[in-house]
Design a protein around this nucleic acid. Sequence first.
DNA 1: TAAAAGTGGGTGCAAAATCAACTAACTGTG
DNA 2: CACAGTTAGTTGATTTTGCACCCACTTTTA
Lengths: 175, 175
Amino acid sequence: MVLARLILGLLCLSPMTGYELKKHFDSSINHFWNADKAQIYRTLAQLVDKGYATVRTVAQSNYPDRQEHHITEAGREVLTGWLSSGAAQSPERDPFMGQVFFAAELEREDIEQLLIQRREATQFILDDYLSQREGIDMRAAADRRSFLMAATLDHAIRQQAAELEWLDAVLEYLP
Amino acid sequence: MVLARLILGLLCLSPMTGYELKKHFDSSINHFWNADKAQIYRTLAQLVDKGYATVRTVAQSNYPDRQEHHITEAGREVLTGWLSSGAAQSPERDPFMGQVFFAAELEREDIEQLLIQRREATQFILDDYLSQREGIDMRAAADRRSFLMAATLDHAIRQQAAELEWLDAVLEYLP
DNA sequence: TAAAAGTGGGTGCAAAATCAACTAACTGTG
DNA sequence: CACAGTTAGTTGATTTTGCACCCACTTTTA
């Protein structure tokens, strides 16, 4: 599945513990994926099982041992295999659009409420993404890896911006 | 879950069989949700179980009996409850963005391949949505229900259009 | 100094979703 | 006539996800 590939991708950047993987999902990856920590640890175990990663226990003085996961050659192959296997289709699943689709069951004010609330949430997310982008060194984006990573954030920003415009249009023309 | 609410929404528009629900998911709803038919039938059974819908078996001369599902008053309450419970947050899960994020593992041409392929797929989906919108009577969009339904399609169109623009930008500036 | 938050790693369970097949009749096309 | 497609629904197995909890220790903060 996708999560396993994403984890392989991160392990490809540098060896990591499940804990660190979770942090990456919550910070750098959050604009296009999220994952429960239980799910991460289990997937990690599967990867080791299949020989796509190996564990190295690293003792620390104060903190618990780190279960550092390293990607293997086989893991790298699976990753590049996925990357070159063609563009994955995106699921197209948006509960909020479902609410809008059936919102006619509500009073006009409640519909507006729904849209305004969404507008606020979207603005909040957009602001978060924008501040994330500020933290990116644009000179570093000259190298391909950083460029592509920044590009996915740009994508999320554009999507949120488009959403805001759409929300405003709907609010304006709602009969 | 969301699927149960969406099914209630559709049943609210008119009584339906699981088969017809599946067709709606594949046609009118496909721009923001999709569902496996097994999942639809099982969820339908759950709804009946909980008293949110009732079944009426309608015999047909040539075809198999229709298991017509009707929404109940309790079902209507659950639906409006969901609608007025506030804007649902969307999952933010895009496998393709994952591929882009880690695409630096590939050769430049392979990355371009990935993006071009996605561009084609996106264009295809956009064209589909655009032709769907052509089929909508814009005079009918004066009533609120049709307006909101059309609006979700508009949303999908904007998202796909934004995606195309983004893809073009990435292809142009890819180092 | 007690409580909260961070580091690190789990388990168990239930719901949700997907895949793949299978039944069974009818309709339209070459 | 054979074959593909449509209508209608069902079953079993498996995967994926989400939620809630648990451990143990350390650092920070109120």
